[in-house]
Simulated assay, not measured.
Amino acid sequence: MTDTRTDVRSTALVIGASRTLGLGLAAELLCRGWDVIGTVRGERRTGLHDLADASGGRLTVESLEMTEPDQIAALRDRLTTAGRTLDLLFVNAAITRGDLPIGDVPTDMFTEVMVTNALGPMRVVEVLGPLVAPAGTIGVMSSDQGSLTLNTDGGQDLYRASKSALNQLMRCYAARHTADGRTLILMDPGWVRTELGGPEADLSVEESVPGVAGTIEQHRGEPGLHFVDHQGQVVPW
């Protein structure tokens, strides 16, 4: 891989980087000159490991089950012991369990989606956020389906609710850190052809990810919370 930046490399931690958007973002950041730490669930080999092998030591792989608080704390301790400082913490995580009216959603399904899509990412932000440099960036993968304004058709009740919850929790985090110089980003990657987005989605991973990375870089040094899409456009709350 060839660096496209001439300044000192920054370091990104991408949570959930084993495949699709997370893997694509890790690869894109490498190409843009970042050093990258990416996390995978469990110990099985993934595309991220292959990318690390080809990175010349600029990508390292960590194991993390984001829904387990003890594992988040252990990752923090490993990074702290290694003296790693982050310029970007980006949390990529989401699941869906089908398009059911909310009254038909079993309680265990509701809990699983909310923990994975909202509570887990915010636990990561709370625990790993202090590792981000004072002028760094903390981002989470959101969706325009988390927008109340844009919800004119309904459907995907639980997924929409989980992303709206994530947005609200990030807003709470921002309100508690108003004096912080870090940039906070809620990122809408567009409708992407992944397992979650489905085969009919508008964008490939390769079409979405450069915009995601470019928008992150565009907002570096701009404190406060930004809800934006992969084209840099503001998404209404």
Rank of each mutant, 00 (worst) to 15 (best):
R123K: 11
F90N: 00
G139P: 07
G136E: 01
D153F: 05
A118N: 08
G98C: 13
V132L: 09
V140A: 13
V125Y: 02
R97T: 09
P121V: 05
E126M: 11
G136P: 09
D153P: 00
T152G: 10
Q71A: 13
T96K: 08
G155H: 02
I102Y: 00
R78M: 02
I72S: 00
N151V: 13
V105G: 13
L100T: 06
L89V: 02
T67G: 05
T149P: 01
L119E: 06
L150V: 11
L128I: 14
G103Q: 01
P134N: 06
V127K: 04
V125E: 00
M114H: 09
E65V: 10
G98L: 08
S147F: 08
T152N: 12
T67M: 10
T67W: 02
P69Y: 08
G103C: 02
F90K: 01
G129V: 12
G56F: 09
A133V: 11
D70H: 08
T85H: 04
A118R: 03
R97V: 13
I95Q: 01
A94E: 01
L131C: 07
G155K: 09
M141I: 10
R78Y: 04
L86T: 01
G129N: 06
E112G: 07
T152F: 06
P130Q: 10
V115D: 15
L59S: 02
V115E: 14
T80A: 12
N151F: 07
L150Q: 09
G139A: 15
T149K: 10
T111N: 13
G120T: 02
L128M: 11
V132Y: 00
T85N: 04
V91Q: 01
T149E: 14
Q71L: 10
E112S: 13
M66D: 01
D153T: 15
A73R: 09
N151C: 06
G136A: 07
D153G: 02
S63L: 03
L59M: 12
G154Q: 06
Q145A: 03
A133S: 15
T107E: 14
Q71S: 07
T116M: 02
M109D: 14
L75W: 04
V105Y: 05
V132T: 15
D108M: 07
G83P: 06
L89E: 00
R78L: 10
G146H: 05
